[in-house]
Design a protein around this nucleic acid. Structure first.
Length: 438
RNA sequence: GUGGGUGUAGCUCAGAUGGCAGAGCGCCUGGUUGUGGUCCAGGAGGUCGCGGGUUCGAGCCCCGUCACUCACCCCA
């Protein structure tokens, strides 16, 4: 199942011209935290690098340097990618588009939909100097296409814009944008009143400021009408205008190319603080409790080299979270548990070589085949196939004639090893979307 | 990191107050003597997470430990 998902994503990404790269799993803490990430999430490695005892209580700067040199497992693919871009800037053709599917680690307590170790599928476009805003639109469309190809329920890609939010909050006099966003992010979970309390008690917002912030966060539209709704709140700010115009572009393009899948949702916050413009977050309809299964955004300068900066925009699909829900709630199931399409039965133990000849003939035409290991009673051999979901059992009689049986229907007929082929749908295991999933 | 919960057969789980380790499903064998699924009869399978303690006696009580899990934080 997971392979099927990965294959599907891979195919879609490559159809859009993204090439694959892989970066090392282990990086120095200094690299991973270069953009001021929350370091408690980072999965540190300690065995390899016990601190030398008695190194002396030197100046704080040396202990900081040592801490930066410590090793840890990467906790996303964006930050390592940034390092990769800087290191290889001379070899890359910008704008550089890549996808990257790898394990990542988070040092936290696992729970439903969250693991210490999981797979992410990232796509990003990075430019040298200037990255046209159009890519923000393109990436959203690529992701919509990739997710649509998966055996999953309907989803909503919710989009917001950091500039829009920051401009608005400044316009009403709230300077701690990150703090406001963190509170707003809890809207779905704890409700409007609790968020208003948070804003007032933790950020010192006034009653009217809290109300305005919540009014903005409550705006959700599938078309560009959010623009008027924001203007109606009567806040003016230059950043706000820029954000409005950017978000409008994303949403209007999405509304025409992928109607129904993308929604402007002005409450989307995103915890990572390196995002500067567009931010994305995706939930499965009917599985909102799972959290976001795909998110990302635009970062203006995740990486810099001298006076060059490399802005980018990208999204990351939480493959493990997605697959765990598909499997756990059987949103889709594999048609069989093994690749085998045909089991060659054995009438007696001496006929094993002939059975291998038959198997070789079938495999030569791309039919996955296995041969029974012992000449057990046919009933047991059929049962072996049945338990694994192998659809066909092959019989060879003593006179050398062949028959093949579809054990689902019970139909059995003469067959020739040199030409028989199963129906196309039985050639390989397929993924079947469970009925009831939209 | 904080606070709960759970660890017993391959799986899902029962096991009042401490007293012979259980059920359903699955598996194996036979009925059906070399063509499965249904049905019937029989059978196998457990260091009760691990280590210590209390007790005549511990799956059950106490201490410790590990794993898994849920919520918070945060996030895919």
């Amino acid at each position: 199942m997971e392979l099927h998902v990965l294959d599907t994503l891979r195919r879609t990404f490559e159809l859009h011209g993204f090439s694959s790269i892989e970066t090392r799993a282990v990086e120095t803490v200094g690299q991973l935290l270069r953009k001021g990430e929350i370091d408690k999430e980072v999965y540190r490695l300690s065995r390899l690098q016990e601190e030398e005892p008695g190194a002396g209580a030197d100046a704080k700067s040396t202990s900081d340097a040592k801490a930066d040199a410590a090793l840890a497992l990467h906790f996303d693919l964006t930050v390592p990618f940034a390092r990769y871009v800087v290191e290889n800037a001379g070899y890359l053709a910008f704008p550089f588009r890549r996808y990257q599917i790898q394990k990542v680690w988070r040092g936290e307590r696992p729970q439903d939909g969250r693991s210490r170790e999981f797979t992410q599928a990232d796509i990003d476009v990075v430019a040298d100097g200037e990255l046209p805003f159009r890519y923000d639109v393109e990436l959203a469309l690529v992701i919509v296409e990739a997710l649509s190809a998966l055996p999953i329920p309907a989803f909503k890609l919710r989009v917001n814009n950091r500039r829009l939010a920051e401009g608005f909050y400044r316009g009403i006099g709230l300077a701690d944008t990150a703090g406001v966003l963190r509170s707003i992010d809890k809207l779905d979970k704890i409700g409007a009143e609790a968020v208003a309390d948070l804003l007032k008690t933790e950020l010192g917002a006034t009653d009217s400021q809290a109300r305005a912030a919540l009014a903005l966060a409550s705006i959700r539209t599938e078309d560009t009408t959010f623009v008027e709704q924001v203007r109606a709140l009567g806040v003016t700010n230059e950043l706000l205008e820029q954000g409005l115009s950017e978000l409008e572009q994303v949403v209007s393009a999405a509304a025409s190319r992928a109607p129904g899948s993308v929604v402007a949702d002005l409450s989307i916050a995103r915890g990572l603080d390196y995002y500067t413009g567009t931010v994305y977050e995706t939930v499965l309809v009917g599985h909102e409790n799972l959290g976001s299964i795909c998110s990302g955004g635009r970062y203006e300068s995740l990486a810099t080299k001298g006076n060059r900066s490399f802005p980018g925009v990208g999204l990351s699909i939480g493959v493990t979270r997605l697959v765990s829900r598909i499997v756990g709630q059987q949103l889709a199931v594999a048609s069989r548990s093994v690749p085998t399409a045909v089991l060659i039965s054995l009438a007696d133990d001496n006929s094993w070589p002939q059975a291998q000849d038959v198997a070789a003939a079938l495999r030569g035409r791309g039919i996955a085949t296995e041969v029974a290991a012992k000449a057990e009673k046919f009933g047991k051999q059929i049962k072996y196939a049945d338990r694994r979901g192998i659809p066909f059992v092959w019989f060879t009689a003593e006179d050398g004639s062949h028959q093949v049986k579809d054990i689902r229907s019970g139909d059995q007929s003469a067959a020739d090893p040199a030409s028989w082929t199963p129906p196309a749908e039985d050639l390989q295991p397929s993924v079947v979307v469970a009925p009831g999933a939209p």
